[in-house]
Design a binder for these strands. Sequence first.
DNA 1: TCCCTTTTTCCATAGATTTGGAAATACCGC
DNA 2: GCGGTATTTCCAAATCTATGGAAAAAGGGA
Lengths: 107, 107
Amino acid sequence: MADTAELRERIPHPPAEALDLATILRTLGDPLRLEIVRILADGRPRVCGELAERLQIPTSTGSYHLRLLREAGITRTRVRGTSREISLRRDDLDARFPGLLDALTRS
Amino acid sequence: MADTAELRERIPHPPAEALDLATILRTLGDPLRLEIVRILADGRPRVCGELAERLQIPTSTGSYHLRLLREAGITRTRVRGTSREISLRRDDLDARFPGLLDALTRS
DNA sequence: TCCCTTTTTCCATAGATTTGGAAATACCGC
DNA sequence: GCGGTATTTCCAAATCTATGGAAAAAGGGA
């Protein structure tokens, strides 16, 4: 039986223990990226195009912000055919910074 | 009897209802500023020089970061003679973004 | 294989941020 | 008023960030 994580991703994500609070806050301190996190807060994954369209930005700009979110460890990106499925890393974030995501997505 | 707030400050602070989450996160997304907030988290006010010395930075740099913290509504600055007494705006932050400060200063 | 779709990479530009020395400002005590 | 102390403002330089068009990459289906 193969490793689940191996099947799930081909894209580099930081390990949970490497998550840095200042980096996370700086990354979320952009209105566009904060909005992406709020959209993802319902737990349903989205593809890049869906998010770019919803935010009314070119896909190249969207790709840039999604890369920062992934590199900060805030989102998880899963390859699905030619698409990328983006979801919140709620498990790791909640374990490492309890209450943070809740405080950010409340209301 | 004069207004307490009037006696307390001569320096512009944003009103509680103007606090913006993205601005707050961007401001805290700097290691130096996050450290200042952690130092202030015990509730005891500090003067600028005390913070600059503790962080090993020139006072002009400290003054810059403290201005950003104040303008974001994260700290309150009170004039005390030639000094400035810096404290966390925990009351307003807790009211506006419940759980945020706790998540940030835990551990 | 060829085409179509989705996303990323490349690249240049515009703009914002951080830094710290030097000068200016402000308040206090004498 | 004067000297001393604390802090801010000014300013320039170095660095980092965001934007978006165009081209490249990568997978799926016929």
